[in-house]
Nucleic acid binder design. Sequence first.
DNA 1: GTGTACATGTAAAGTGTTACATGATTTC
DNA 2: GAAATCATGTAACACTTTACATGTACAC
Lengths: 185, 185
Amino acid sequence: MDIRTLCLGILSLGEATGYEINKMVAEGSFSFFSQASFGSIYPSLTKLTNAGLVTCRAEPQQKRPDKKIYNITKAGRETLTQELKRSPGPDRNRSDFLAAVLFAEAVSPTRIQDLIDDRIYEHRHKIAALEALLEEDMSVGSRFVVEYGVAMQRTALEYLQKHRHIFDSAKPVPDAPKGEAKLAT
Amino acid sequence: MDIRTLCLGILSLGEATGYEINKMVAEGSFSFFSQASFGSIYPSLTKLTNAGLVTCRAEPQQKRPDKKIYNITKAGRETLTQELKRSPGPDRNRSDFLAAVLFAEAVSPTRIQDLIDDRIYEHRHKIAALEALLEEDMSVGSRFVVEYGVAMQRTALEYLQKHRHIFDSAKPVPDAPKGEAKLAT
DNA sequence: GTGTACATGTAAAGTGTTACATGATTTC
DNA sequence: GAAATCATGTAACACTTTACATGTACAC
């Protein structure tokens, strides 16, 4: 799903400005499963407007750029419906943390526990932030997604706490550990 | 983490060809947390070779392009160690599924249950595939990562099974939900 | 006085995917 | 006879990030 469709979907839930969309994606309930920045959101909104899928009304502000409030149009809803008929692509999860754990084993074993401990700390913060979000009023769908996020974060946290010890005996690997190295296929 | 570093890390675990790296990333234990295709892997290997971080030896094949087997160099390991000293960036999860569920609520409510049912089916398959992977011999780190993946997939599956009903008002639960596969839960 | 929140946007640079190009061998 | 596996690689295109550009207002 490209940023254009993401913006269209967010606007299907209610009007918003580019700034607000960025906040939702960066910190709000969209932050688990999407990411985008101003550099992609603003151009997307412009394109959607030109395509007639959203309308834009400017609200004057004092000493600031006008607020541009976007609304989805009927054509926009139809386009989104068509888009949702296509089966969603597979999830794409990219975790530098998991990669680092794997690679640290071969190259810098003493680093693994630090990596895991930092991660545990981050998970706790993230869970607290999500639970705070849940205190607010939100739609059934948003709540479903945020609770899904909490469940996933909790599982990750528990897994790390439970399995952290397996690296306790980690020892440096000799310079050339090839031969019949066991790479998972 | 860019594809160049990903390739370097994979090669730190043992020698491999571009083709093999692609398989690991597309289907193997790297597939949860990274993705890359030939179009990015081959150029990355070329760049790493030019930078002296890996070496390449060609093994002649019959009626096929030579196999190019890459090995990490000492300089490559040092570069990787440096890279691992930097704290890993945040996870970036992109899920068209979660986005679709959220947007479908506003635009096409009857679609949600289908989306969830398909997803449940996919999770079962994925879990089965991962558990098959675990039967094989693999390093401590690989096992850690694959088991992490299994835990996450299971949580997602259970969450969807448990919370699927909240969208019932959008569409009654069919008596015999389709896609009810006989795979391990 | 420093940082954050508000509020928009552009341009260059980098990164990654998709489709193409080639071709034998094995499995269904 | 079709599709998958093995095996490499390029080029065009799409997408995203980062840095730039321009301010005010408020809290600490």
